[in-house]
Design a binder for these strands. Structure first.
Lengths: 192, 192, 192, 192
DNA sequence: TATGAATGAGCGTTCATTCAT
DNA sequence: GATGAATGAACGCTCATTCAT
């Protein structure tokens, strides 16, 4: 049974990396099987279809981020520090962009409706966690109470996603240290 | 000749909307033809392959945004007003998200290398225009000279993209009026 | 009317050379039209189908050879000289091989049944002319009366066809002057 | 593994007979599969393309003849007997004509360049074997040393090919017993 | 009459899925 | 359970033929 779960995980891991690298339609079941070190037929002992595998990797992606967020949020640190942690997480994790709203949209045509809904719920949850963090900031007095927390969450997610993508795009390097980014988010780019 | 160009455009329009709706691999040439009101073979009088059609819709997408940005930037208005215009543009134009960095990344596996490069150059150009706007803001004294213009551009693109996506995602509605968003970008969410 | 026939001939000439060069299935109507200097649609004013064009070029091929043979046979010269003429004809005319029995067999799958029959009749006729020549040789006392004229005809046609093909195959050059070949046919390769 | 080779052979056999019967372009992969008793997709488990199948049947054809010739030549019999054997072989083997020079020329437009070259080399080899036989005849004193062995080879191949074709062409029957043919080749049709 | 843009039947090939071993 | 050989539905693309101009 432990072995069963392990093999299942192997297949998902293999699939996830191939899907990311080549996209859904350019990834063949045979490749997933080979990379997972099993036979093609074996894949179908663990999953009923390629679709199901994809669905699951999508949900996984969101879940991974969700868990990280939960974990960060549960720490006994300030809002500012939590944001900093989030940025670190995102910086090393390409999956962040994919897991956020645009990940859902990008794959809308590939994932099954059911899973789109599930992902959207997950994204909702993630937004809720971030909103909680922001509310903590408001309580701590570091975040302005004049702006809706959801809007702020949107800003954080979108901006940090673009930072990641920007950096990944063709190895272009812009000086983007965390401190600067956080200052930018907190203070905006306007002259005071 | 005029008719030739018109039919070509019809096919591209049909293709663009189907690609957006169903993705590249789920869109059949036959559907593109039907929606454009022509026969399957006719498509190949205007394009040499499905790939070529896709490539062209991608470049188009970027070009459309690029032109809008150029146009906005050429107006004799303040930086703040330009940003406002950009947000309006984006708000009505789903293509914005697709045209920015993540549009390139999303389709990396589908578009031909050549076109990925072309798109990246376009994206570069777009960033350059936005950077110019920001520099105008710096000159006008409304934008802080302490932050790199590229970083600010990244913030604007990412955030506004996420706003669009967020809104489009399953009709969820958050109060996001332009003034609020612009204030958020200029002043951040930190307490002053 | 004269113009009509001329254009028809142009198309056939164009088709014949393309069919020879690239084969039936690799030759497109568009190419035939272009090489004949007419529009694609025009071809169908003169022929009802690609098949018909091919059929006609096949019959033509045989007819051309048939006419040459008739002409040679009608001359007031000896059998030996006639053979010599035939070899000259063949040497400069690739169509010979194609027009003989193996030309029919090669194209059996492409030409319509009706035309296969027509060609076979033509080939029959050609054989009859050659048989007549041989009979002349028998009368002249230069050809042995012990061998069936048809068998001899077969020898002449087959051998000279292979000489042509052999020479055309990849520009290989073997010394094959007419005198030697004719001696070989008359006397065989056996030691006397 | 034995089964693999068997199925591969089945497909080749099916293809060969269909190609012969209907030509390359009129033979559908589906037919080849059906005749071989397998599914369409299975064909592609054994070959990468229709072209490859065709190429292989072509090379096979030449190889079969090549082997027969080698075998005949290796026997401890006189040149005259070897020729007799060759004629017998050809009489039962339609592939002979296809395997000789004109087989290569006929399919020049269909086979891949690479395989045309390979076939031409095979044909070269076949000619070399026949030349060896002829040289044996010269040594035995039955073949005239005054004629180039290559020319004689050409005569033998061409003539015997035409005999085969002539006979196969629509069931026409001419009295062509081996002895007569061999006498014709050795002594020619001239009066001594 | 001449044209070439439009057409769609037809085919080679791919690949997710099945099932006998 | 594990496998991979076998399968056939599905789709991109070609090109002979048609027909409006």
């Amino acid at each position: 049974m432990a072995e069963y779960n392990q093999k299942r995980k192997d297949i998902l891991t293999s699939a996830r990396s191939l899907f990311r690298e080549k996209g859904f339609h350019n990834t063949k079941i045979e490749e997933i099987a080979a990379k997972a070190g099993v036979g093609k037929g074996t894949v179908y002992e663990y999953f009923t279809s390629k679709q199901e595998i994809f669905d699951e990797t999508c949900i996984d992606k969101v879940a991974v981020i969700h868990d990280s967020l939960e974990e960060i949020n549960s720490r006994n640190i300030s809002f500012r520090e939590k944001i900093e942690e989030m940025l670190s997480m995102k910086e090393t994790n390409t999956e962040f962009a994919e897991a956020s709203v645009d990940g859902v949209m990008t794959n809308k045509n590939i994932i099954s409706k059911k899973v789109v809904l599930a992902m959207m719920n997950h994204v909702d949850d993630m937004y809720k966690i971030i909103v909680k963090m922001i509310d903590q900031g408001k309580e701590e007095g570091s975040v302005s109470k004049d702006v809706s927390s959801e809007l702020i969450a949107c800003l954080i997610v979108g901006a940090s996603g673009e930072f990641v993508r920007f950096r990944h795009l063709n190895g272009r390097t812009v000086p983007m240290d965390k401190k600067t980014i956080i200052n930018l988010l907190f203070n905006g780019f306007g002259v005071k």
